[in-house]
Write a protein that binds this DNA or RNA. Sequence first.
DNA 1: TCTTTTCGACAACCACATTGACCACCCTAA
DNA 2: TTAGGGTGGTCAATGTGGTTGTCGAAAAGA
Lengths: 171, 171
Amino acid sequence: MVVEKKVNQVVDSVEGDPPQRWGFELPLLLFTGFRSLIDQLHEELADHGYPDLRPAHGFAMQAIGPDGVTASELGRRLGISKQAAGKTVDRLAAMGYAQRVADPRDARRKLVRLTPRGLDALTLSAAVFQELRGQWAERLGNGRLTELEDALESVVGPAGFRLDAAGWFGD
Amino acid sequence: MVVEKKVNQVVDSVEGDPPQRWGFELPLLLFTGFRSLIDQLHEELADHGYPDLRPAHGFAMQAIGPDGVTASELGRRLGISKQAAGKTVDRLAAMGYAQRVADPRDARRKLVRLTPRGLDALTLSAAVFQELRGQWAERLGNGRLTELEDALESVVGPAGFRLDAAGWFGD
DNA sequence: TCTTTTCGACAACCACATTGACCACCCTAA
DNA sequence: TTAGGGTGGTCAATGTGGTTGTCGAAAAGA
């Protein structure tokens, strides 16, 4: 990559107008948008009886899915060790969002399944996201919103979304 | 918020086409875009002699800024305790990106400043982001990219960007 | 059947945050 | 001028969520 050139470009334009927009604005805008949606989601969730859910829990429950998974598989999906996944399940179970059930077809396995409460939280989340998208559509106009979504998809690809976001940021 | 209505809407359309796009795609697209930019940034940083930098370090260094801050103020900006901020500074200092200097005007304070190496990393990051934005512009066309940025800004506002992203996600 | 792999658990450990306590220092008002 | 309150930095204890290592039981494959 020709970054050296860019260094001078950036340094030079400190005294002047940005070419169009600074490059660093893009990730910040994306992150701020994401964060605002997630924060609003959890406000709604709290108001509707799920005050203890955190963003990471949503990813975990999404990774469990409607059919359930083993703790090992959950670890793979979340990008953490199976032991850490087991502890995550413990926490979700203690909060009443998940449970372990023995797998009759494989005595080693214990399937992690969402409880009805867990499924409800997921259903509500989907509805809140739909509502929030509606608010964006109101503000931007449906066309601009769709273009935004399409543009993003064409850059990042429709590639299956990664759920291993928990420790990714970490120090 | 009229979420109850949305629940049925979402449940109903499980058997059918999404209204346009599912609401949950929007946050995922935003996050995936953000993540892809950050991942590529850190690939570049690693290739240019900064292999030990993690995303969270970038936020911390950004919070320190070119003028330096006290550890307490750093804690406020990052949304963590001053003790945790102090440890973060210890880590950055151990890696050679920051240093503490006594403040001659206030004997209590120790100013945290970026080292030349830290400043270089920040400058390089800005250049990489500029380059990455160029790649997006190539793929989308400059017009569509600018529209994307403008649309995002009009939703989340030009409000100063929050740096307290580290523990925000957390479990 | 024998070997290898997989699953879930237990234990020890580590990284990074927390709270609480403390002293040194600045600032201001009596 | 001095007493008090607020602020800055550090130490200590603790909590949480992750890691690796190990293990026995069970499944899968040669």
